[in-house]
Design a protein around this nucleic acid. Structure first.
Length: 205
DNA sequence: GCGACAG
DNA sequence: ATCTTGTCGC
């Protein structure tokens, strides 16, 4: 990996953060989930589009070689472009996208879901299974614990919380609503499907 | 050397 | 994310 100018990338993050709009999402019939998997330097990103009842409508994949390393708080520059391309390959434009990564829950309010939502101008919800610095690591509470720009959720039997935050064009309240709608399990269905597909595809070939 | 910020 | 099997529990 070559050298990257994190200072200028910070400025870009502030720019993305300024483009974030918290408005109420209107029509929501088609939902997408996006996730990336890796094998050595190879990356594969999968987007799955489902209907309101969970039926799969279509999927798309984008694969290639990684061009940016994993650096905490800079995840958008590693996976964002791949996710954006994957969504663009879908024949149907999603009304809402579940992104495997934080949205506003980020030091500069510019997580992966914000990047994807701003680039595509489509509502996005950020979801993550691991806490960033300063956020609860254990389920020492039950239900929703509201944080600065997101919420930590703990349900019965969970050891660790999951984190939900707005990515773009949606309110935190609605984000929570949609998480609950698509999460009979800890991982929301759209992301679980994208996760499974990406994992399967990266192991063949 | 220690602590450690999503994937 | 990745390296990796079985296994405890609802």
């Amino acid at each position: 990996m070559r050298d990257f100018d994190l200072k200028s990338l910070r400025k870009k993050q502030k720019e993305y953060s300024s483009f974030f709009r918290e408005i109420e999402v209107k029509k929501a019939e088609n939902f997408a989930g996006v996730d990336c998997h890796y094998k050595s330097e190879k990356i594969i990103c999968c987007a799955v589009l489902i209907g309101i009842h969970g039926e799969i409508i279509e999927e798309s994949i984008t694969e290639g070689k990684t061009f940016f390393p994993y650096i905490p708080t800079f995840l958008a520059f590693r996976e964002g472009p791949w996710m954006v391309n994957s969504i663009r390959k879908l024949k149907t434009v999603p009304d809402l996208i579940f992104v495997d990564g934080n949205g506003r829950l980020h030091p500069l309010g510019a997580g992966l879901a914000v990047y994807v939502g701003v680039k595509l101008n489509i509502p996005t919800i950020g979801f993550s299974k691991n806490p960033m610095k300063g956020y609860p690591k254990e389920c020492s509470f039950n239900g929703e614990k509201f944080l600065k720009n997101g919420v930590a959720i703990c349900r019965k039997g969970w050891k660790k919380p999951v984190f939900i935050s707005s990515g773009n064009l949606i309110t935190l309240r609605k984000s929570l609503e949609f998480y609950n709608l698509f999460s009979p399990t800890k991982i929301p269905i759209p992301i679980r499907l994208a996760h499974q597909r990406a994992r399967l595809l990266i192991n063949e070939h």
